[in-house]
Computed example of a mutant assay.
Amino acid sequence: MHIILAVVFPLLGAAQWVLLEDSPKWVRYPARIAAFGYVVFYGALDALAGIGGGAMTMNNAREAAQPVFAIGNQLGHVGAWSFFAASIAIGVCALFQHKLKAIPGAAFLLTGSFLFLDSHIYWPKGVIACTCIAIGMAAISYVSPRPAR
């Protein structure tokens, strides 16, 4: 499962990158660095703990895998906080730019991003977090249409 997620989870950071396009430069650049931090550090969690630690556990080396899980979880926390920081920037900028129309999307995105800090994708909290993130990003994208080029 983590092999698939190693490809899917970075797309959340890519979505943040796109949603930051309308933001002022002084917000956009630090928030995009945070989105990049999410992609790198959360990707490291999936690679180390998900794929590496999972393979060790499946091969009866659960005790030996504990340091791998510990390092992966530390990296994952950095990634999740980076995601939350970028989400705050997206939500606040959407509220300033689109006022009342942005409230539902910002509320879902920030709620989901907060829940994501310590839930990964585990049922039920992680599934709720990812669903809120998806709804929030879609709603903000809907109220922030991109001009035709």
Rank of each mutant, 00 (worst) to 15 (best):
I121V: 13
A65W: 02
A134W: 08
I51R: 07
W17K: 00
Q66T: 12
A47T: 12
Y42W: 11
A70T: 15
I4P: 00
G136K: 01
F36Y: 11
I90K: 00
A64Q: 15
L95F: 07
P147W: 06
L110G: 08
G76A: 08
Y122E: 14
R62N: 06
A138H: 01
I4V: 15
G79R: 07
L75R: 09
I88M: 10
M1H: 13
G43F: 08
K99C: 01
I88E: 01
L5S: 10
A86C: 08
G72E: 07
C130Q: 13
K25E: 13
I121P: 00
A65L: 02
A102M: 07
L20D: 01
F69A: 12
N60S: 12
A86T: 01
V143K: 05
S23M: 09
A14F: 14
P10R: 08
Q74R: 14
L109C: 06
Y38G: 02
L117W: 03
L100K: 15
F96R: 15
Q74S: 13
F41E: 02
A44S: 13
I133R: 01
I4W: 11
F116K: 09
V143R: 04
P30W: 07
V18P: 01
A148G: 00
A94M: 00
L5G: 07
F108D: 03
R62Q: 11
V8M: 11
F108Q: 02
A35Y: 03
L48R: 11
I3G: 12
A14C: 10
A70Q: 14
A107I: 14
Y29K: 11
G112Y: 07
V68A: 05
A6F: 13
Y122L: 14
K25R: 14
